[in-house]
């Protein structure tokens, strides 16, 4: 009995030893990465004000009729999973469904020149929606992203009254399908969060900007407003740009060239 079990035990020891070694080999670089560059790798490491995320929209490159950014946002954030409640009026539903980004087409009253641009939450430095929220559910992260804490949102919609950009949506209906990365619930307010779930796992990109590039338009440049050598600051330096409702002095994180 004892002789028979000996080789088995030996095999188990070998296996455990090898497993421990392999685990150490697999985990160690991760641990190293945690200590060396915790911001990039740790989804739970918190957000710092070392960055301020933003976008530059070059309206001259935004193509008429293209909805790549809108479609990508819908996919990324599960907005395409919303379903029109049975019996709701079609037109009303278009105004009730959540929209994080929309294509806007403008015509200059004097020259007749037509401009296309995507409009989403402008991620203000001084967001009116955050000021007015009675519970603090509407908040600004240290990295400048303005979003809604769905645990404390009471659905009063005061932020929607306050937003100058019509960027926020109220969930009017029962939600049956949603993505883990974009939780959604009836009776709360939500808006663009610059794909925070990507940023928090170290992926410095947004679905809209990626889609625009993939279409070959390059009308959207995403990046860090605080990084003078980064792509966003470089692009901002090259093109004269402004903020929508610049008169309000909100210092938006989203800037527009060509309007």
């Amino acid at each position: 009995m004892k002789n028979e079990s000996e080789p088995t035990n030996q095999g188990r020891r070998d296996f455990l030893g090898a497993a421990a070694g392999l685990t150490a080999a697999a985990v160690a670089p991760g641990m190293m990465l945690h200590t060396v560059d915790s911001e990039a790798a740790a989804p739970t490491g918190g957000v710092s004000d070392a960055h301020r995320w933003g976008l530059l929209v070059d309206t001259s490159k935004c193509a008429d009729g293209c909805t790549a950014c809108v479609d990508a946002c819908d996919q990324e954030n599960g907005l395409n999973l919303q379903s029109q409640p049975l019996g709701d009026d079609e037109l009303k539903w278009q105004n009730q469904r959540a929209t994080w980004i929309r294509k806007v087409k403008l015509q200059d009253n004097l020259t007749g020149q037509v401009t296309n641009l995507p409009l989403m939450c402008q991620h203000c430095e001084h967001p009116p929606c955050v000021d007015v929220c009675p519970t603090g559910a509407s908040f600004k992260r240290a990295d400048g992203i303005v979003m809604v804490d769905r645990h404390t949102c009471i659905g009063c919609r005061y932020c929607m009254m306050a937003c100058p950009y019509k960027a926020r949506s109220f969930i009017h209906e029962q939600v049956d399908q949603k993505l883990t990365r974009a939780p959604r619930g009836k009776g709360c307010v939500e808006s663009c969060n610059l794909c925070a779930h990507r940023l928090d796992t170290g992926d410095i990109s947004t679905a809209c900007a990626d889609a625009c590039s993939a279409e070959g338009h390059q009308a959207l440049v995403f990046g860090d407003l605080k990084d003078p050598t980064g792509p966003l600051r470089q692009a901002l330096a090259k093109k004269p740009n402004r903020q929508i409702r610049q008169d309000l002095g909100l210092n938006t994180g989203v800037r527009y060239a060509g309007i």
Binding site: V70, Q94, T99, R102, K103, V104, K105, L106, Q107, D108, N109, V114, T115
Partner: peptide, 8 residues
């Protein structure tokens, strides 16, 4: 400007 299209 006049808004000729706003979203879908």
């Amino acid at each position: 400007h006049s808004v000729i299209q706003f979203g879908a």
